[in-house]
Simulated scan of single mutants.
Amino acid sequence: MAKKLTELQARGLPSKDNYQKKTLVLQRWKENILGYGFIFPAFLVLGAFVFYPFFQSVYLSFFTTDPSGNIAEFAGFQNYIHLFTNSEFLSSLGITLLFTLYTVPASIILALLLAVLTYNKWKGMQIFQLIFSLPIAMTIGTSSLIWMLLYDPSTGLFNYLLHHLGLPSIQWLNDPSWALISVSIMSIWMSLGLNYIILLAGVRHVPEEIYESARVDGAGSLRILLQMTIPLMSPYLFFVFVTSVISSLQAFGQFNILTNGGPADSTNVFVFSLYQEAFVNFQYGLGSTRALILFVVIMLLTWLNFKFGERRVHYQ
């Protein structure tokens, strides 16, 4: 037999080992082609709606455009210089950061407290869990219209309650000192559903034996929450914090419906000013520049979160 294999190799015919290797290589090629075939539709969608718009924005940021969106002339870095010397741009960036400061901590703390209060599997607790999760099922448009009715200065529920408490009415969306706070309250409610679901899963992930041991040692509820629950569910809190920051920096729909950037530009957040520049003033070059700056800001803040915030995360 060995003599026959030697003769086959001498004639240039493949041996049994070489045949098996070629079969394995061919099988791997088929698997790779099949795998690429499955991801190709997703790649097309990402290319059409993510990669192409991104590179097109980079390209347009170096040009000025006419009202039709056609390139007029090369501007170089003039669009960037114009924005960073524009008081309106710096103001919108500051309003966006202030909106983030209003909404992110409040939404996380509120969702955490509700998750801690309702994680038990007591009878009837699922009703409260369903109620606190409901905002996730509401679209921005629907939620904004509901809150617009609540904020109505003459027929809204909030001013009705203030009137019965003997307090003066508030121009929630028409007063520059209240407009951003009003939209922030609505945004906190909107983000509550998703944050609550994630943090509820985090609280349930903590073993019940740890709570029982702490109670036996005499630890109170507040101490258990601060020294045990929060550290053990830190991966969930970190994820919610990062996604909430990104979401707040990209907020647009509620401002467009409730305040339209007003009054007196008090709610002119970054994405709304981008929309105004590109689709109202038809300055696609400046709009693309704003979009890229927002991309850089989000990337920088996300990197800082992972650089310094993840050190406090305890993965089990």
Rank of each mutant, 00 (worst) to 15 (best):
314 H>F: 12
117 L>V: 07
167 L>R: 13
153 P>M: 06
297 V>Y: 06
176 P>D: 00
21 K>N: 12
224 I>E: 04
78 Q>P: 05
244 S>C: 11
181 I>N: 04
309 G>E: 01
237 L>P: 02
39 I>W: 06
13 L>P: 11
193 G>F: 02
235 P>Y: 06
95 I>G: 03
38 F>I: 09
45 V>D: 05
269 V>A: 00
157 L>E: 08
295 F>C: 15
178 W>C: 08
104 V>E: 00
35 G>Q: 12
163 H>V: 11
105 P>T: 02
195 N>D: 04
217 D>E: 00
188 I>F: 01
106 A>P: 05
16 K>W: 11
220 G>K: 06
260 N>R: 14
142 T>V: 11
62 F>A: 14
151 Y>S: 03
121 K>T: 15
108 I>S: 00
286 L>Q: 10
259 T>M: 02
105 P>N: 04
71 I>F: 07
259 T>R: 00
56 Q>A: 15
236 Y>P: 04
207 P>T: 15
133 S>W: 06
284 Y>G: 09
303 W>F: 15
4 K>S: 13
10 A>Q: 15
254 Q>K: 03
300 L>K: 14
144 S>E: 01
261 G>S: 11
293 I>C: 13
227 Q>D: 11
304 L>V: 11
183 V>M: 05
53 P>C: 04
243 T>M: 07
236 Y>H: 10
81 I>H: 12
211 Y>M: 02
202 G>E: 00
102 Y>P: 01
15 S>N: 14
201 A>M: 01
194 L>K: 05
273 S>C: 08
306 F>T: 06
54 F>S: 07
254 Q>S: 06
32 N>S: 13
226 L>M: 15
230 I>Q: 04
108 I>Y: 00
288 S>D: 01
55 F>M: 01
172 W>C: 03
180 L>T: 13
82 H>R: 13
215 R>I: 14
156 G>T: 14
314 H>V: 10
225 L>F: 12
96 T>F: 03
81 I>Y: 09
289 T>Q: 02
255 F>V: 14
164 H>S: 15
295 F>S: 12
57 S>W: 06
42 A>N: 09
283 Q>I: 15
191 S>N: 14
151 Y>P: 01
7 E>P: 09
40 F>P: 11
4 K>H: 08
158 F>C: 09
37 G>L: 03
46 L>E: 13
107 S>Q: 09
291 A>Y: 02
270 F>Q: 00
6 T>V: 10
122 W>K: 14
72 A>Y: 15
97 L>T: 05
6 T>K: 12
160 Y>P: 12
107 S>L: 04
80 Y>H: 06
171 Q>W: 13
97 L>Q: 06
